[in-house]
Nucleic acid binder design. Structure first.
Lengths: 94, 94, 94, 94
DNA sequence: GTGGTCTAGACCACG
DNA sequence: GTGGTCTAGACCACT
Protein backbone atom coordinates (compact mmCIF):
# COMPACT_ATOMS: atom_id res chain seq x y z
CA UNK A 1 0.00 0.00 0.00
CA UNK A 2 1.18 3.44 -0.85
CA UNK A 3 0.93 6.49 1.31
CA UNK A 4 0.79 10.16 0.60
CA UNK A 5 3.90 11.96 1.85
CA UNK A 6 1.73 14.54 3.54
CA UNK A 7 -0.86 12.17 4.95
CA UNK A 8 -1.89 12.24 8.56
CA UNK A 9 -2.31 9.31 10.87
CA UNK A 10 -5.82 7.92 10.99
CA UNK A 11 -6.51 6.19 14.27
CA UNK A 12 -9.35 3.94 13.20
CA UNK A 13 -7.94 2.93 9.82
CA UNK A 14 -7.43 -0.75 9.03
CA UNK A 15 -3.64 -0.32 9.09
CA UNK A 16 -2.13 0.32 12.51
CA UNK A 17 -0.53 3.75 13.08
CA UNK A 18 3.05 2.46 13.02
CA UNK A 19 2.41 1.00 9.55
CA UNK A 20 0.87 4.21 8.33
CA UNK A 21 3.86 6.19 9.57
CA UNK A 22 6.27 3.73 7.99
CA UNK A 23 4.44 4.17 4.72
CA UNK A 24 4.56 7.96 4.94
CA UNK A 25 8.25 7.98 5.73
CA UNK A 26 8.95 5.50 2.96
CA UNK A 27 7.30 7.85 0.50
CA UNK A 28 9.13 10.87 1.87
CA UNK A 29 12.47 9.10 1.58
CA UNK A 30 11.80 8.09 -2.00
CA UNK A 31 10.61 11.62 -2.73
CA UNK A 32 13.96 12.87 -1.50
CA UNK A 33 12.95 14.81 1.60
CA UNK A 34 16.27 13.74 3.09
CA UNK A 35 19.41 12.89 1.14
CA UNK A 36 21.28 9.60 1.64
CA UNK A 37 23.53 9.67 4.71
CA UNK A 38 21.59 12.57 6.16
CA UNK A 39 19.47 12.44 9.31
CA UNK A 40 15.70 12.26 9.20
CA UNK A 41 13.60 13.82 11.93
CA UNK A 42 14.42 12.77 15.49
CA UNK A 43 12.14 10.35 17.28
CA UNK A 44 10.91 13.14 19.53
CA UNK A 45 10.14 15.29 16.54
CA UNK A 46 8.26 12.50 14.79
CA UNK A 47 6.18 11.99 17.92
CA UNK A 48 5.19 15.63 17.90
CA UNK A 49 4.59 15.95 14.18
CA UNK A 50 2.41 12.88 13.89
CA UNK A 51 0.88 12.78 17.36
CA UNK A 52 2.25 9.34 18.15
CA UNK A 53 3.94 7.73 21.14
CA UNK A 54 7.62 6.86 21.23
CA UNK A 55 7.12 3.10 20.92
CA UNK A 56 4.94 3.57 17.86
CA UNK A 57 7.49 5.82 16.18
CA UNK A 58 10.29 3.39 17.03
CA UNK A 59 8.32 0.52 15.53
CA UNK A 60 7.92 2.41 12.26
CA UNK A 61 11.61 3.23 12.15
CA UNK A 62 12.51 -0.36 12.95
CA UNK A 63 10.48 -1.49 9.95
CA UNK A 64 12.31 0.85 7.61
CA UNK A 65 15.65 -0.20 9.05
CA UNK A 66 14.71 -3.79 8.35
CA UNK A 67 13.92 -2.78 4.77
CA UNK A 68 17.35 -1.23 4.43
CA UNK A 69 16.02 2.27 3.90
CA UNK A 70 17.27 3.71 7.17
CA UNK A 71 20.07 2.99 9.60
CA UNK A 72 20.40 4.05 13.20
CA UNK A 73 23.61 5.30 14.77
CA UNK A 74 23.26 4.75 18.53
CA UNK A 75 23.07 7.98 20.51
CA UNK A 76 23.47 10.02 17.35
CA UNK A 77 20.54 9.79 15.00
CA UNK A 78 18.63 7.96 12.32
CA UNK A 79 19.94 8.28 8.76
CA UNK A 80 18.82 7.54 5.23
CA UNK A 81 20.67 4.59 3.74
CA UNK A 82 22.90 5.14 0.74
CA UNK A 83 20.77 3.00 -1.46
CA UNK A 84 17.41 4.23 -0.34
CA UNK A 85 15.31 1.93 -2.53
CA UNK A 86 16.76 -1.55 -2.09
CA UNK A 87 15.32 -4.69 -3.69
CA UNK A 88 11.60 -4.85 -3.09
CA UNK A 89 10.76 -6.63 0.13
CA UNK A 90 7.76 -7.34 2.21
CA UNK A 91 6.82 -3.73 2.60
CA UNK A 92 3.17 -4.04 3.35
CA UNK A 93 3.11 -7.51 4.78
CA UNK A 94 3.95 -7.86 8.45
CA UNK B 1 35.47 4.03 6.10
CA UNK B 2 37.95 5.86 3.92
CA UNK B 3 38.24 9.58 3.59
CA UNK B 4 39.44 11.83 0.83
CA UNK B 5 42.54 13.79 1.81
CA UNK B 6 40.87 16.96 0.64
CA UNK B 7 37.45 16.27 2.06
CA UNK B 8 35.61 18.81 4.14
CA UNK B 9 33.83 18.20 7.40
CA UNK B 10 30.13 17.45 7.05
CA UNK B 11 28.26 18.32 10.23
CA UNK B 12 25.21 16.27 9.37
CA UNK B 13 26.97 13.04 8.51
CA UNK B 14 26.48 9.81 10.45
CA UNK B 15 30.14 9.93 11.46
CA UNK B 16 30.87 12.69 13.99
CA UNK B 17 33.26 15.46 12.87
CA UNK B 18 36.14 14.29 15.04
CA UNK B 19 36.01 10.93 13.30
CA UNK B 20 35.89 12.51 9.87
CA UNK B 21 38.93 14.63 10.71
CA UNK B 22 40.80 11.58 11.98
CA UNK B 23 40.05 9.86 8.70
CA UNK B 24 41.23 12.81 6.64
CA UNK B 25 44.46 13.13 8.60
CA UNK B 26 45.01 9.39 8.39
CA UNK B 27 44.82 9.63 4.62
CA UNK B 28 47.08 12.66 4.49
CA UNK B 29 49.70 10.94 6.62
CA UNK B 30 49.66 7.86 4.41
CA UNK B 31 49.83 10.10 1.37
CA UNK B 32 52.96 11.65 2.78
CA UNK B 33 51.84 15.21 3.42
CA UNK B 34 54.21 15.20 6.39
CA UNK B 35 57.37 13.12 6.75
CA UNK B 36 57.96 10.85 9.75
CA UNK B 37 59.31 12.74 12.78
CA UNK B 38 58.07 16.02 11.34
CA UNK B 39 55.28 18.09 12.87
CA UNK B 40 51.81 18.17 11.37
CA UNK B 41 49.67 21.30 11.55
CA UNK B 42 49.21 22.80 15.02
CA UNK B 43 45.92 22.27 16.82
CA UNK B 44 45.05 25.91 16.31
CA UNK B 45 45.76 25.67 12.61
CA UNK B 46 43.66 22.52 12.25
CA UNK B 47 40.79 24.34 13.97
CA UNK B 48 40.97 27.12 11.42
CA UNK B 49 41.45 24.91 8.37
CA UNK B 50 38.57 22.59 9.16
CA UNK B 51 36.32 24.94 11.08
CA UNK B 52 36.37 22.87 14.25
CA UNK B 53 36.86 23.58 17.93
CA UNK B 54 39.96 22.64 19.90
CA UNK B 55 38.39 19.69 21.75
CA UNK B 56 37.16 18.20 18.49
CA UNK B 57 40.59 18.51 16.91
CA UNK B 58 42.24 17.09 20.00
CA UNK B 59 39.91 14.12 19.96
CA UNK B 60 40.87 13.33 16.38
CA UNK B 61 44.56 13.60 17.23
CA UNK B 62 44.08 11.39 20.27
CA UNK B 63 42.61 8.69 18.05
CA UNK B 64 45.60 8.76 15.71
CA UNK B 65 48.02 8.75 18.64
CA UNK B 66 46.24 5.67 19.94
CA UNK B 67 46.68 4.07 16.53
CA UNK B 68 50.38 4.82 16.65
CA UNK B 69 50.32 7.18 13.68
CA UNK B 70 51.13 10.35 15.60
CA UNK B 71 52.86 11.28 18.83
CA UNK B 72 52.54 14.45 20.84
CA UNK B 73 55.39 16.35 22.44
CA UNK B 74 53.85 18.52 25.18
CA UNK B 75 54.12 22.23 24.49
CA UNK B 76 56.05 21.56 21.28
CA UNK B 77 53.85 19.95 18.69
CA UNK B 78 52.29 16.86 17.19
CA UNK B 79 54.52 14.65 15.07
CA UNK B 80 54.19 11.84 12.56
CA UNK B 81 55.35 8.51 13.98
CA UNK B 82 58.32 6.78 12.41
CA UNK B 83 56.25 3.91 11.20
CA UNK B 84 53.27 5.88 10.02
CA UNK B 85 51.15 2.96 8.84
CA UNK B 86 50.92 0.41 11.66
CA UNK B 87 48.82 -2.75 11.48
CA UNK B 88 45.15 -2.00 10.85
CA UNK B 89 43.12 -1.61 13.98
CA UNK B 90 39.66 -0.64 15.06
CA UNK B 91 39.67 2.82 13.65
CA UNK B 92 36.14 3.64 14.60
CA UNK B 93 36.41 2.61 18.23
CA UNK B 94 37.24 5.39 20.61
CA UNK C 1 41.83 16.71 50.56
CA UNK C 2 38.61 16.17 52.47
CA UNK C 3 35.33 17.82 51.72
CA UNK C 4 32.37 18.74 53.84
CA UNK C 5 29.23 16.83 52.86
CA UNK C 6 27.32 20.09 52.73
CA UNK C 7 29.99 22.15 51.02
CA UNK C 8 29.24 24.26 48.01
CA UNK C 9 31.24 24.44 44.81
CA UNK C 10 33.81 27.22 44.73
CA UNK C 11 34.65 28.22 41.18
CA UNK C 12 37.83 30.03 42.10
CA UNK C 13 39.40 27.29 44.17
CA UNK C 14 42.66 25.57 43.25
CA UNK C 15 40.74 22.30 42.86
CA UNK C 16 38.50 22.23 39.79
CA UNK C 17 34.73 21.94 40.41
CA UNK C 18 34.48 18.34 39.20
CA UNK C 19 37.05 17.35 41.84
CA UNK C 20 35.23 19.25 44.55
CA UNK C 21 31.97 17.52 43.65
CA UNK C 22 33.68 14.13 43.68
CA UNK C 23 34.97 14.92 47.15
CA UNK C 24 31.55 15.97 48.39
CA UNK C 25 29.86 12.87 47.01
CA UNK C 26 32.61 10.68 48.43
CA UNK C 27 31.89 12.12 51.86
CA UNK C 28 28.13 11.75 51.45
CA UNK C 29 28.48 8.11 50.41
CA UNK C 30 30.66 7.33 53.40
CA UNK C 31 28.22 9.20 55.63
CA UNK C 32 25.48 6.93 54.36
CA UNK C 33 23.26 9.37 52.49
CA UNK C 34 22.50 6.54 50.09
CA UNK C 35 22.55 2.83 50.94
CA UNK C 36 24.57 0.34 48.89
CA UNK C 37 22.79 -0.80 45.72
CA UNK C 38 20.54 2.24 45.89
CA UNK C 39 20.59 5.08 43.34
CA UNK C 40 22.15 8.40 44.14
CA UNK C 41 20.76 11.62 42.67
CA UNK C 42 20.36 11.67 38.89
CA UNK C 43 22.87 13.56 36.82
CA UNK C 44 20.26 16.19 36.05
CA UNK C 45 19.48 16.61 39.72
CA UNK C 46 23.14 16.94 40.64
CA UNK C 47 23.48 19.65 37.99
CA UNK C 48 20.66 21.61 39.58
CA UNK C 49 21.72 21.07 43.19
CA UNK C 50 25.32 22.11 42.66
CA UNK C 51 24.94 24.52 39.76
CA UNK C 52 27.15 22.53 37.42
CA UNK C 53 26.88 21.33 33.84
CA UNK C 54 26.32 17.74 32.81
CA UNK C 55 29.90 17.05 31.68
CA UNK C 56 31.26 18.33 34.97
CA UNK C 57 28.89 16.14 36.95
CA UNK C 58 29.68 13.16 34.75
CA UNK C 59 33.38 13.65 35.28
CA UNK C 60 32.92 13.57 39.05
CA UNK C 61 30.84 10.41 38.79
CA UNK C 62 33.42 8.81 36.52
CA UNK C 63 36.08 9.40 39.15
CA UNK C 64 34.02 7.69 41.84
CA UNK C 65 33.20 4.80 39.52
CA UNK C 66 36.91 4.38 38.93
CA UNK C 67 37.42 4.30 42.68
CA UNK C 68 34.82 1.57 42.97
CA UNK C 69 32.41 3.65 45.03
CA UNK C 70 29.68 3.92 42.41
CA UNK C 71 28.51 1.98 39.39
CA UNK C 72 26.41 3.15 36.50
CA UNK C 73 23.58 1.23 34.90
CA UNK C 74 23.08 2.70 31.42
CA UNK C 75 19.76 4.45 31.00
CA UNK C 76 18.72 3.52 34.53
CA UNK C 77 20.78 5.35 37.07
CA UNK C 78 23.94 5.63 39.15
CA UNK C 79 24.20 3.36 42.19
CA UNK C 80 26.28 3.05 45.34
CA UNK C 81 28.62 0.06 45.19
CA UNK C 82 28.19 -2.76 47.67
CA UNK C 83 31.48 -2.09 49.32
CA UNK C 84 31.27 1.68 49.30
CA UNK C 85 34.61 2.41 50.93
CA UNK C 86 37.32 0.52 49.05
CA UNK C 87 41.03 0.81 49.75
CA UNK C 88 42.27 4.37 49.50
CA UNK C 89 43.62 5.31 46.13
CA UNK C 90 44.84 8.28 44.20
CA UNK C 91 41.73 10.35 44.47
CA UNK C 92 43.13 13.36 42.70
CA UNK C 93 44.42 11.50 39.67
CA UNK C 94 42.08 11.46 36.73
CA UNK D 1 63.51 45.77 51.38
CA UNK D 2 59.87 46.69 51.38
CA UNK D 3 57.85 47.72 48.41
CA UNK D 4 54.80 49.84 47.96
CA UNK D 5 51.85 47.79 46.80
CA UNK D 6 51.16 50.29 44.06
CA UNK D 7 54.75 50.83 42.99
CA UNK D 8 55.84 50.64 39.39
CA UNK D 9 58.85 48.82 38.03
CA UNK D 10 61.93 51.00 37.70
CA UNK D 11 64.24 49.70 35.02
CA UNK D 12 67.50 51.25 36.21
CA UNK D 13 67.03 50.65 39.91
CA UNK D 14 69.65 48.70 41.89
CA UNK D 15 67.22 45.78 42.34
CA UNK D 16 66.43 43.83 39.20
CA UNK D 17 62.81 44.03 37.93
CA UNK D 18 61.90 40.48 38.99
CA UNK D 19 62.88 41.35 42.57
CA UNK D 20 60.90 44.53 42.50
CA UNK D 21 57.85 42.65 41.24
CA UNK D 22 58.30 39.97 43.89
CA UNK D 23 58.39 42.70 46.51
CA UNK D 24 55.27 44.36 45.19
CA UNK D 25 53.35 41.09 45.07
CA UNK D 26 54.58 40.18 48.56
CA UNK D 27 53.14 43.41 49.87
CA UNK D 28 49.88 42.97 48.00
CA UNK D 29 49.45 39.45 49.36
CA UNK D 30 50.07 40.61 52.92
CA UNK D 31 47.69 43.51 52.34
CA UNK D 32 45.05 40.98 51.40
CA UNK D 33 44.50 41.79 47.74
CA UNK D 34 43.81 38.09 47.21
CA UNK D 35 42.46 35.69 49.84
CA UNK D 36 44.21 32.42 50.68
CA UNK D 37 43.45 29.66 48.17
CA UNK D 38 42.33 32.21 45.61
CA UNK D 39 44.11 32.94 42.33
CA UNK D 40 46.29 35.97 41.83
CA UNK D 41 46.61 37.63 38.43
CA UNK D 42 47.59 35.35 35.54
CA UNK D 43 51.12 35.51 34.20
CA UNK D 44 49.87 37.18 31.05
CA UNK D 45 48.03 39.78 33.08
CA UNK D 46 51.08 40.52 35.23
CA UNK D 47 53.14 41.02 32.09
CA UNK D 48 50.68 43.60 30.84
CA UNK D 49 50.15 45.38 34.15
CA UNK D 50 53.82 45.78 34.95
CA UNK D 51 55.30 45.92 31.45
CA UNK D 52 57.50 42.89 31.99
CA UNK D 53 58.37 39.82 29.95
CA UNK D 54 57.09 36.35 30.76
CA UNK D 55 60.41 35.02 32.10
CA UNK D 56 60.73 37.99 34.45
CA UNK D 57 57.22 37.50 35.79
CA UNK D 58 57.82 33.79 36.20
CA UNK D 59 61.01 34.44 38.12
CA UNK D 60 59.17 36.67 40.57
CA UNK D 61 56.46 34.08 41.06
CA UNK D 62 59.05 31.36 41.55
CA UNK D 63 60.62 33.40 44.35
CA UNK D 64 57.31 33.73 46.17
CA UNK D 65 56.57 30.04 45.69
CA UNK D 66 59.92 29.29 47.26
CA UNK D 67 58.97 31.50 50.19
CA UNK D 68 55.75 29.55 50.64
CA UNK D 69 53.51 32.50 49.85
CA UNK D 70 52.17 31.18 46.58
CA UNK D 71 51.63 27.80 45.00
CA UNK D 72 51.14 26.93 41.36
CA UNK D 73 48.62 24.42 40.07
CA UNK D 74 49.87 23.30 36.66
CA UNK D 75 47.66 24.42 33.80
CA UNK D 76 45.24 26.03 36.21
CA UNK D 77 46.63 29.04 37.97
CA UNK D 78 48.76 30.56 40.71
CA UNK D 79 47.21 30.71 44.18
CA UNK D 80 47.86 32.37 47.52
CA UNK D 81 49.04 29.88 50.13
CA UNK D 82 46.88 29.20 53.18
CA UNK D 83 49.45 30.66 55.51
CA UNK D 84 50.44 33.64 53.45
CA UNK D 85 53.16 34.92 55.79
CA UNK D 86 55.33 31.92 56.71
CA UNK D 87 58.51 32.08 58.77
CA UNK D 88 60.78 34.84 57.51
CA UNK D 89 63.23 33.68 54.91
CA UNK D 90 65.77 35.11 52.58
CA UNK D 91 63.32 37.41 50.91
CA UNK D 92 65.65 39.97 49.45
CA UNK D 93 68.81 37.93 49.17
CA UNK D 94 69.19 35.80 46.08
C1' DG E 1 53.59 30.35 19.67
C1' DT E 2 52.46 25.53 21.54
C1' DG E 3 49.59 21.94 23.88
C1' DG E 4 46.76 21.24 28.48
C1' DT E 5 42.62 21.80 31.16
C1' DC E 6 38.22 22.78 32.32
C1' DT E 7 33.25 24.22 31.95
C1' DA E 8 29.31 24.67 29.02
C1' DG E 9 25.06 23.30 26.47
C1' DA E 10 22.45 20.92 22.99
C1' DC E 11 20.89 16.81 20.97
C1' DC E 12 20.18 12.00 20.82
C1' DA E 13 18.49 7.06 21.70
C1' DC E 14 16.83 4.43 25.21
C1' DG E 15 13.75 2.03 28.95
C1' DG F 1 12.55 10.19 32.92
C1' DT F 2 17.53 8.29 32.44
C1' DG F 3 22.43 8.23 30.88
C1' DG F 4 25.31 8.81 26.28
C1' DT F 5 27.55 11.67 22.91
C1' DC F 6 29.32 15.41 20.75
C1' DT F 7 30.78 20.30 19.83
C1' DA F 8 32.01 24.70 21.72
C1' DG F 9 34.95 28.30 23.84
C1' DA F 10 37.71 30.37 27.43
C1' DC F 11 41.61 30.31 30.26
C1' DC F 12 45.93 28.63 31.77
C1' DA F 13 51.09 27.45 32.12
C1' DC F 14 54.81 26.60 29.37
C1' DT F 15 58.78 26.94 25.70
Amino acid sequence: MEYDADAEIIRDAPEPPFQQLAGILRTRIQRGDWAPRRPILSETRLCEDYGLSRPTVRRAIAALVKEGRLFVVPQRGTYVADRSAPASEDESAE
